[in-house]
């Protein structure tokens, strides 16, 4: 048993790194959907925007550039989310597929503009100084930057969980997920809540893009891959649930890492096989409420 554990420790650790990143990415998507029925298919494009911002600012591999990239990405994400919130306002009473059409259109535009601006080559980003190189974990090398990702991801998860579960703002968000009309009847402007949640959710996506850049680089098409992963996480966890997003992200992190290491023969099938399996057993995800199924 310990032999098995040692052998797969790196894979497990790596699953946590992927999981942390996926959680940062998915939590915004999940709350926005649960609260406002906005299916934001531009989430992946926001992530890629963050990655390309990292390319522009981290070029020299300095902490200054890294922090600048994070700051600018956060600002860009906040503004983009706010703008998206405004753009979806006229669609509030329309079928959810109209929002899918809008946000997918936006993601196509953003991705094309990025490819015009940065070209189609694969661009890579160095980790900030001090986080380059590897450390030894159970006799195997493991990159330091990914260890930091796990720490940052878990910290962010804790912060988001505390905010949503323990503060009055969080209570408002949870109440909006449960019954939007009631919140509105209490005299709270739904649009402001939506603006804030969509803004912060998109900000988390662009920030995740910067954080992931030293690992995944920046390239055309990354947005689509990431969007699908995030959607899978959100759906497995259950829409609108922070806990679901966390469990879903950690589960998919392990599936993508440990799962692939253990059964490489079916690596190509394992992600969507897991999704199908979860939805067959629990048609509304692990922590989804019934109300949302037909949202």
């Amino acid at each position: 048993m310990t032999g098995w554990f040692d052998e797969n420790l790196v894979s497990i650790l790596n699953g946590f790194a992927i999981g942390s990143l996926l959680f940062i990415l998915a939590v915004g998507l999940s709350i926005v959907f649960g609260m406002m029925d906005v299916l934001n298919l531009a989430h992946g494009a926001f992530f890629l925007t963050g990655s390309y911002l990292a390319v522009s600012f981290v070029a020299g591999g300095s902490w200054g550039g890294y922090v600048t990239a994070l700051g600018i990405a956060a600002l860009v994400g906040l503004l983009a989310g706010g703008a998206l919130s405004g753009m979806t306002e006229p669609l509030a009473r329309r079928p959810i597929l109209d929002q899918a059409l809008l946000t997918l259109g936006i993601s196509l535009i953003v991705a094309e503009v990025l490819s015009i601006a940065y070209g189609n080559d694969v661009l890579s980003v160095p980790p900030p100084p001090g986080l380059t190189g590897s450390v030894s974990v159970a006799g195997n090398a493991y990159p330091v930057y990914r260890l930091m990702l796990i720490v940052v991801g878990l910290l962010l998860a804790l912060v988001v969980w505390l905010v949503v579960e323990k503060t009055s703002v969080g209570a408002l968000v949870r109440a909006s997920v449960a019954d939007r009309d009631m919140v509105s009847a209490l005299g709270i402007d739904n649009r402001k809540v939506k603006f804030a949640v969509l803004g912060i959710g998109s900000m988390l996506a662009t920030v995740a893009g910067v954080l992931a850049a030293p690992v995944y680089g920046a390239r055309p098409g990354l947005d689509k891959t990431i969007l699908i992963l995030a959607l899978v996480v959100v759906v497995i966890g259950g829409l609108g649930s922070v806990r679901g997003a966390l469990i879903g992200a950690l589960l998919i992190g392990q599936v993508e890492s440990l799962g692939r290491a253990l059964v490489p023969e079916i690596a190509s099938f394992i992600l969507f096989g897991t999704l199908a399996l979860v939805l067959v057993v629990r048609p509304r995800g692990l922590f989804g409420s019934r109300k949302l199924a037909h949202g």
Binding site: I96, F272, L279, R284, A293
Partner: peptide
């Protein structure tokens, strides 16, 4: 058996498989 967005994602999974 499912509906809404869950139907969307389950069919996505079937398509990808």
């Amino acid at each position: 058996r499912s509906g809404g967005v869950y139907f969307l994602m389950l069919t996505l999974a079937i398509g990808e498989l």
